[in-house]
């Protein structure tokens, strides 16, 4: 029955035009970034590397596909959650507001299994979205700009050789999928509570923005609560671009993200199982 339910959910999801909006938006964003870099990337590289060139001798193809992918995902991780919740936030509340739950739940369908099927479908959708981001940004980047080493600045300057970069990007994108699953799981909680499509989207984004702001302030009380916020750990995709991988830090974040996903899914199941279908 579970497979049937997942199949139905996938069929419903991919029969709707709005499910493709996020893919289309992703394509446009990546193309705009790559086009912009094609037109004016060199001056950006000159500006960024100006100080470095006083200390280092920089040679080779600095404006390469890997760098552009890195720049793309740096900005896109802020926007991808919006593209995710547009669809995942609507998966439960959309049916509540459309009234279709009345038909579905008057049949021999377990509420828990229905939610699990929707959740798995949402996770497949999110994974496809991030895979598309990876394929587009890496594929087009390498196609248009070639490959090369990259220099990244976080807590220190890291110069990463070309040979390890594909693996690092793949790991970062897999971590990105996990982060976006968490966003989807959070939107599911609100989606199970709401009777309209908009509230879960707004509430999920409000929490992500609030937590991101708190995560980025390095003062007082914020400093103490930062390690407990899931947004702090969502940002740890950047750890894959440290020269030496800190698996303790990465592993810790993975456990925390999976823990949050589990908690949000459990909350969704509790809320939905107790919910009166009145719409």
């Amino acid at each position: 029955m579970m497979l049937t339910l997942i199949h139905i959910e996938l069929e419903k999801l991919f029969s709707r035009g709005r499910s493709y909006i996020s893919f289309f938006a992703m394509l446009v964003i990546v193309l705009v970034i790559q086009g912009g870099m094609m037109l004016d990337g060199d001056s950006l590289i000159d500006f960024v590397s100006e100080n470095l060139q006083e200390v280092f001798i920089l040679e080779g193809n600095l404006l390469n596909g890997y760098l552009i992918t890195f720049i793309s995902i740096n900005g896109l991780w802020i926007h991808v959650p919006i593209l995710v919740v547009i669809v995942t936030g609507d998966m439960i509340s959309g049916e509540a507001s459309a009234g279709t739950f009345r038909m579905v739940l008057s049949r021999p369908v377990s509420r828990s299994k229905l939610i699990l099927a929707k959740f798995i479908t949402a996770m497949i959708y999110v994974a496809l979205l991030v895979i598309m981001l990876a394929v587009l940004s890496l594929g087009l980047g390498i196609l248009f700009f070639g490959t090369g080493d990259i220099i990244v600045f976080f807590e220190s300057i890291n110069i990463l050789p070309e040979e390890i970069l594909m693996d690092r990007f793949l790991m970062a994108f897999v971590f990105g999928i996990l982060s976006m699953w968490l966003v989807g799981a959070l939107s599911f909680v609100f989606s199970a509570m709401a009777e309209n499509s908009l509230s879960p989207i707004i509430l999920t984004m409000a929490i992500i923005i609030l937590f991101t702001v708190i995560s980025s302030f390095e003062v007082g009380i914020f400093e103490k609560i930062r390690p407990y916020l899931f947004t702090t750990h969502m940002n740890h995709w950047q750890s894959f671009f440290d020269y030496e991988l800190d698996w303790n830090k990465i592993g810790n974040s993975i456990v925390i993200l999976i823990g949050h996903i589990f908690v949000f899914l459990t909350l969704t199941l509790i809320v939905f199982n107790k919910k009166d279908i009145t719409s």
Binding site: T4, H7, I8, E11, K12, R16, R102, S106, V109
Partner: peptide, 24 residues
């Protein structure tokens, strides 16, 4: 129950097919 609400982006046949699947 009350209004007949369906998946508007699916055909009549597909809606009934889905309902049959839900009914096992």
């Amino acid at each position: 129950i009350e209004r007949p609400d369906f998946y508007p982006y699916l055909t009549a046949c597909k809606n009934l097919e889905i309902m049959l699947k839900y009914s096992r």
